[in-house]
């Protein structure tokens, strides 16, 4: 069963893979280089730049901020997103169609515009502390992922199951937690992970909302690059990639990645 494949197709596919994977390989290589400047292929091999991340206090602090922000922001977003997705599905006959669009606005509007308008409103106008406005910004940024992914789960949920529970004596709120939530659990977990990664890697929104004393890891990466052009940047990038891959691997192992693409 030999299928003939055109050599041009092979070349095209190879190019696509090269451009997809190439930069990542270069970053990993550069992070391992023994030189004090970014270079590829690496000259000599060292893990010094990885340990260097943790020696620079700005990286340590922003890493903590980023993870805390991703965790809290995503949790906050799910707290809003799950009930919103539920309501949009439960009452889709009576609710206007534009309402569901509102919840995906943060991805429809250019992120930089979104970040800027948040700076004007949260930081400048309302005068919120930096961390609070970052938290609000990230929660809003990832809300579309939460609503969308949870919606996909709800689309497969039969609401007469909920009615059955109510008819058997379970009050509506309790029914939500004991019957609806367990059946959209996979969607909620998938949403959490997608949102967590998005928040962790965000630059455009954070750029406007970070301020004196508080920054996120990707922003610190930019700041560092402006002054030093050493392999630490590559090492941080590899670290962010590794976290993303690790999270994905956990999802794959526990739920299967099909939850993300469904």
């Amino acid at each position: 069963m030999a299928t003939r494949i055109h050599p041009l197709l092979v070349a095209f596919a190879a190019l696509v893979f090269f451009f997809l994977v190439g930069p990542l390989v270069i970053i990993v290589g550069a992070a391992l280089s023994d030189t004090s400047f970014l270079t590829f292929p690496p000259q000599g091999l060292t893990l010094h730049w990885f340990s260097n991340i943790f020696e620079i206090s700005a990286f340590r602090e922003t890493m903590t901020t980023s993870f805390l922000l991703a965790f809290l922001g995503t949790s906050l977003s799910l707290l809003v997103g799950i009930p919103a997705a539920y309501a949009l599905h439960r009452h889709r006959v009576t609710l206007p169609t534009w309402l569901s669009t509102v919840f995906v606005l943060p991805v429809l509007i250019p992120e930089i515009v979104f970040g800027f308008s948040l700076m004007k409103s949260a930081t400048a106008a309302a005068g919120l502390p930096i961390f609070a406005s970052l938290l609000i910004g990230h929660a809003l940024l990832v809300l579309p992922y939460c609503v969308r992914v949870v919606s996909a789960s709800l689309a497969a949920f039969d609401f007469s199951v909920e009615e059955a529970a109510v008819s058997l004596g379970s009050p509506p709120l309790k029914t939500f937690f004991t019957v609806v939530l367990p059946n959209i659990r996979a969607g909620a977990i998938a949403a959490f992970i997608l949102a967590f990664i998005t928040s962790l890697n965000d630059v455009s929104v954070s750029l406007f909302l970070t301020g004196p004393g508080i920054s996120t890891l990707p922003i610190q990466l930019l700041a560092h690059m402006e002054q030093f052009f050493d392999p630490t940047i590559a090492a941080v990038s590899v670290l962010l990639m590794a976290v993303t891959v690790a999270v994905m691997a956990v999802v794959e192992a526990t739920l299967g990645l099909s939850f993300l693409t469904k």
Partner: peptide, 20 residues
């Protein structure tokens, strides 16, 4: 009276069993 307090047994068209 709210639905959950009515004490009525209902059999639905699509069974509506709890999948979990």
């Amino acid at each position: 009276k709210p639905a959950h307090a009515r004490n009525i047994g209902i059999v639905f068209q699509n069974y509506a069993l709890f999948p979990h």
